[in-house]
Amino acid sequence: MAESEDIFLRAKHRTFSGLTEDAEREWTGPFYFIQAADPQLGLMKAWRDGDCDGGGDEWAEEVELTKQAVQAVNQLRPRPRFMVLCGDLVHAMPGVKAVFSGHYHRNAGGRHDGLDMVVSSAIGCQLGEDTHGLRVVVVTADDIVHRYLSLEQLSARGVDDDLRKLLQV
């Protein structure tokens, strides 16, 4: 039990002690990793029932399959160097009002048929006139309100008062 707990304690501060820059700087030979995608908890029942807009309320099948995937990976020899999980973690079709993304390195977006596409600029390299920053997104029962704030704004004054008021019940 202590060994399995130690594995999880090795990942912190956006690093993993088993994959440090010093240890990985030079090529030491071939390796492999596992890429897994879309456990999408709730989708199987929704599709089976034909209710993709509201039927994602049962996750048992996807949880069991995800456990099987983890068990299969844990039994592999040689062990993979790491595993990456990407894609949809939960079934999010019902109630989607906005899609948030990045990679454009500037703020952008659009709207089509009630769906907002929101592109947030970068913390790092800017390709437009936007400052280095973060997007604050407040989700209420009735709305999604978002605002891009520079790192300086966020550090100096925090979240804007109007956004903070939306969080009060």
Rank of each mutant, 00 (worst) to 15 (best):
A11E: 14
G124E: 03
T20F: 09
V99W: 06
W27Q: 09
H13Y: 15
V118N: 00
H105D: 07
D162F: 02
V118T: 01
V118C: 01
R25P: 05
A98I: 07
A92G: 15
R25E: 09
L127S: 07
L41F: 15
V139S: 06
L43N: 03
I34M: 12
A141M: 02
K45F: 06
A122V: 02
G110D: 04
R79I: 00
L65V: 11
A156T: 02
V84F: 14
K67F: 09
L163M: 11
V159W: 00
V137M: 07
L65H: 12
M44S: 11
L41D: 01
C86M: 12
A11S: 15
K12M: 02
E3V: 11
T15E: 09
C52M: 13
S101Q: 11
D49K: 14
E62G: 06
A69D: 01
G109V: 06
Y104L: 14
I144T: 14
G128P: 08
F8T: 10
V84T: 14
G128M: 10
E62M: 10
L163G: 02
D57W: 07
G56D: 05
E26C: 09
K45H: 10
G158H: 00
Q126R: 07
M117K: 04
A72D: 13
P78Q: 02
P80K: 03
A36K: 05
Q75Y: 04
K67D: 10
F33R: 05
M1F: 15
D51R: 15
L19Y: 08
R48D: 05
D49S: 13
H103G: 08
L41Y: 15
G54Q: 03
G128D: 06
E58R: 13
D113I: 02
G29N: 07
